[in-house]
Design a protein around this nucleic acid. Structure first.
Lengths: 237, 237
DNA sequence: TCACGTTTGCTAACGCCGTTAACGGCGCAT
DNA sequence: ATGCGCCGTTAACGGCGTTAGCAAACGTGA
């Protein structure tokens, strides 16, 4: 993995580009992330960026990947800060970290979890961003794996799950090479639906019609989901 | 509400504009919904559209309003098709209709429930689209009201709800002038989080990493939520 | 019927955008 | 030292939202 001088300055330039793009996204909004603006910030001209990315869209995809990594790192550090054997604390930490990150990085969050960029999921080719996205998802799945291993919460037996769903879950488990009951994956997905649903609605302002401060509502959901997982959610801190 | 000839042709033109915009959205994708393209389809030029809308963004907001109305109508007709006193059937119909509409109108759905268009929810001025959005939300809320009135599902008592959440729910209830327990509104919001979360994840392809066919997974969630509401969800049809 | 103000379309233009082509200089390896 | 490849440039194309200025059509009241 040793890079020559040439490759090093190239990698550094790519980093500077994506960081400039991200800063523009944060400070000016997604519409301000143009090739000309990025180049201007870097003291270059727009066509020069084509030496590093084949298109504006691919540049954005790279930013998406970086953002996923950033979010994943935040989750990991949140998990690390929790007491090693307090599963309830770890679960709370991960979910709250996700919400906090979304709250503190609304525009970045929109890029990750809002409307997909391109035409629409037609040929979903494998790229840097989708790999980072999978790594992010895996962080939560591994948390569930640990949760279930240390403190098995009630989970439907394989035979109890509808055939259609079971087959897909089995295929997913095999693809990942994980060893855990299908019901655990099912519960993971259901929890993810609620976590993602609550945070997205809130961040995109789709709860404003009813709630002025969605935070306690989120905490309520967090407590419910935690109790579904057999965790002790009485300690609110 | 009688309109002169002048106003009638104006209203008709506005309709033609939004319908052309919507057709472009459906057939070519959101990036194809440009003023020039709309005008071209109508045999006009782009600046002429400024006689009807003050900006491209406002035109899109009007399309959003129309789409909300379309979706709301679909929900109502789905509800109407269900047996009048079979609450489980009505609940299933509404949720399935929502998912089906989202599935059959992916790009429109993205416009309604994806990343908000403008800078980002700063000055949320009242406009046609937000009014239609509220009407849509009310459709679900009224369903819950009817559900609870005819078949009261278990709901936390007002005193059991955390102060922070209770106050907001009370304010929302008073704003709407509805007469139903705060716990019912709370359950409504929680169900909406799950319904919206599941459908959005699925439509935006954010469940592809695990599931190839999300429909049975959705049906599972539907059954769970329905049972939470005390409905008989055994009949799958 | 005619004149007048309003409404509705047009063309031309501005400054953006993503993208491509052609070209020059700089660094590195032979 | 020479040549090649990488990296940046300028110029340009077509398309975008938007504005200004103008002309024709329209409805209305005298």
């Amino acid at each position: 993995m040793n890079l020559g001088r040439r490759e090093r300055v190239r990698a550094a330039t790519i980093m500077e580009i994506t960081e400039t793009a991200r800063r523009l996204l944060v400070q000016e909004g997604s519409e301000a992330v143009t090739l000309r603006a990025i180049a201007r910030e870097m003291g270059m001209t727009a066509p020069a960026l084509y030496r590093y990315f084949p298109s504006h869209g691919q540049l954005l995809r790279h930013v998406v990947g970086d953002l996923f990594n950033d979010l994943t790192d935040a989750l990991h550090s949140g998990l690390h800060a929790a007491p090693e054997h307090d599963m309830a604390a770890k679960f709370r930490a991960a979910c709250r970290e996700f919400r906090t990150w979304a709250h503190d990085h609304r525009r970045e969050y929109a890029l990750l979890f809002g409307t997909p960029l391109p035409g629409f999921g037609q040929e979903e080719q494998e790229d840097f961003a989708s790999e980072c996205g999978r790594r992010f998802g895996l962080t939560f799945l591994e948390l569930f794996q640990e949760l279930w291993a240390k403190l098995p919460f009630p989970v439907p037996a394989d035979a109890e799950i509808d055939d259609d769903v079971r087959e897909q879950l089995a295929a997913y488990r095999d693809r990942l090479g994980l060893d855990l009951p299908l019901g655990c994956i099912l519960v993971f997905l259901q929890c993810w639906v609620r976590l993602h649903g609550a945070v997205s609605l809130e961040v995109f302002g789709h709860l404003d019609f009813a709630l002025t401060d969605p935070e306690p509502f989120f905490e309520l959901m967090l407590r419910e989901v935690g109790e579904r997982l057999g965790l002790d959610m009485t300690n609110p801190a």
